[in-house]
Amino acid sequence: MFARRISTHAPLVGLMLTLLAGVSRAEEEKEGMPQLDPHSFASQLFWLTIFFVLVFVFLRFIGLPRVTAIIDERAKKIGTDIASAELLRTQAAEAEKTYETTMAAAQGKARQLLAETHEQNAAILAEETKLATAAADHEVNQAVKRIEADRSKALHSIRDVARGLAADITAKLAGRMPSADRVALAVDLAAGEIA
């Protein structure tokens, strides 16, 4: 719109300037407006044509393809970078998922293994305990028997000693040796009373 407005006024401005330049040309006969001197037109048109065509050919076939190639290359690079980043991201997500499932499986397995081992250990422990208890009981029984034997043996020897003593004491007191049977009877009676 702005450009359109200029376009409506510019010819007027140009015309006024041309008129002004014409006035100044009228005042100074020697040096007018060089723009209106047709002697230079051929040269200007000739060189403008040459350089414009050169600029156009250069830009069309060399300059702009190089610029667009750079811009396309950049866009492509950014595109592939984003694509590869996306790929890596999905791969990472997948890896994480795999890790998590593996981890969960391993944990489950570990828990199961733990439970199994615990059970086994408990069974072994129970078995061992039973065996050890049996062994200990056996030992205790043996020991009790041995103690019983020793005690009866000790009691016998005490009785023998008592019989001997009684016999000796009686012999000393009565002056004669009592029979072994009576001594034994008397000691057993006394022991029974004591007991």
Partner: peptide, 12 residues
Amino acid sequence: SLSVRLFANMMA
């Protein structure tokens, strides 16, 4: 208009 606009602006 196209040519006079440019010419006049530059010259002025």
